[in-house]
Measured scan of single mutants.
Amino acid sequence: MTEYKLVVVGAGGVGKSALTIQLIQNHFVDEYDPTIEDSYRKQVVIDGETCLLDILDTAGQEEYSAMRDQYMRTGEGFLCVFAINNTKSFEDIHHYREQIKRVKDSEDVPMVLVGNKCDLPSRTVDTKQAQDLARSYGIPFIETSAKTRQGVDDAFYTLVREIRKHKEKMSKDGKKKKKKSKTKCVIM
């Protein structure tokens, strides 16, 4: 069974824990209790493949930012979460993405942009803004509501699919490099 290491990042209060708990335990946590770091595991079937999701729910508070490099190193894919009623959390996505790329030393890291709290009427981040940002990053965008469960499975499952595509691409690139290195030079 394939294991996928997913990391949920975003500013404090955007609903990272609520999304994760909704996926794992099928219930909505409405009281806000700032996370330092929590880890969850769940076995699911995605596109006919049974897999184990190892999900790291991270601290959004700035005082825990020193811990970010460590979990970013171990993560295979990242859910970059903002709240649709919090423009600052949307603007912060850029910083999370840049930090992930720096730590992973790669421009090509599996990510999904997630606009959470889409059940709320007080939207300050337009869907088109988020779609445009995701398009500019070359990553999928999904709106979710941890409260109603809308888009929750889709967000995590899409990230797994992005990781699969990335692994497939990397193995193809690896095979191309191996083929090239088999060419021999004969000096007579």
Rank of each mutant, 00 (worst) to 15 (best):
E49Q: 14
G60R: 02
R41V: 07
Q61S: 15
E31W: 12
K42P: 04
K42Y: 07
G12C: 10
E49C: 08
T20N: 07
G12E: 14
P34Q: 05
Q22C: 04
R41Y: 07
G10S: 04
Q43K: 15
T58F: 01
V29Y: 11
G12V: 09
V29L: 09
L52T: 15
D54S: 14
I24D: 05
Q25S: 10
T35V: 02
Y32R: 05
L52N: 14
V45F: 09
E31P: 12
E63H: 08
V8F: 03
V45W: 08
G13I: 11
D33H: 04
N26C: 08
D33Q: 05
F28G: 03
K42C: 07
T58H: 01
T58K: 02
G48A: 08
Q43E: 14
I55T: 14
Q25A: 07
S17C: 03
V8D: 02
A11L: 15
C51A: 09
T20V: 09
I36T: 02
I46Q: 11
G12P: 12
D47F: 05
K42S: 10
Q61L: 10
I24P: 02
Y4K: 15
Q43H: 10
V8P: 00
T20S: 09
D57T: 00
D47T: 07
T50H: 12
T58W: 00
E3I: 09
T2M: 12
T35W: 00
Y64F: 11
E62Q: 09
L56V: 09
L56P: 01
K42E: 07
I21N: 15
S17P: 00
Q43I: 08
Q61K: 13
L56D: 03
G60F: 01
L56E: 04
I55W: 04
E63S: 08
L19Y: 07
P34C: 05
Y64E: 06
V7H: 15
D38Q: 01
T2C: 12
D38G: 02
E31C: 14
G10M: 00
Q43D: 12
H27N: 12
Y32M: 04
L56H: 07
G13F: 12
A59F: 02
V44P: 11
V44C: 12
L53W: 09
S39V: 06
P34F: 05
I46P: 08
K42T: 09
G48V: 07
A11E: 10
Q22V: 04
V8H: 02
N26G: 12
A18N: 15
T20Q: 03
D33L: 03
E37G: 07
K16C: 06
H27W: 12
G12F: 07
D47R: 09
V29E: 13
E37V: 04
F28H: 06
A59C: 06
Q22E: 11
I46N: 13
E3G: 15
V14H: 10
G15L: 00
E49V: 10
Q25Y: 07
T35S: 03
V7F: 06
I55H: 06
K16Q: 01
F28A: 04
F28P: 03
V8N: 02
L56T: 09
G10V: 01
R41F: 06
G60H: 03
L52I: 15
Y4Q: 12
K16R: 03
G60N: 02
T35M: 01
E63A: 07
I46C: 11
L19I: 11
A11S: 09
K5Q: 06
C51G: 10
E31Q: 13
I46T: 08
G10H: 00
L53C: 12
T50P: 13
D57L: 02
Q22N: 15
D54I: 05
Y4S: 13
E63K: 09
G13K: 09
Q22I: 03
V14S: 12
K5A: 04
C51Y: 13
T58R: 02
Q25M: 07
S39G: 15
A18F: 02
L19K: 12
V7E: 06
H27E: 10
S39A: 15
Y64V: 05
T35R: 02
I46K: 13
Y4V: 10
S17G: 03
L19H: 15
K5T: 04
E62F: 07
D30P: 14
A59D: 03
T50V: 11
Y40M: 01
Q25E: 08
C51R: 09
E3Y: 09
T50R: 12
D54F: 05
G60K: 02
E31S: 15
E31A: 14
E62I: 07
V8S: 04
L53T: 14
T35H: 01
G60P: 03
N26A: 13
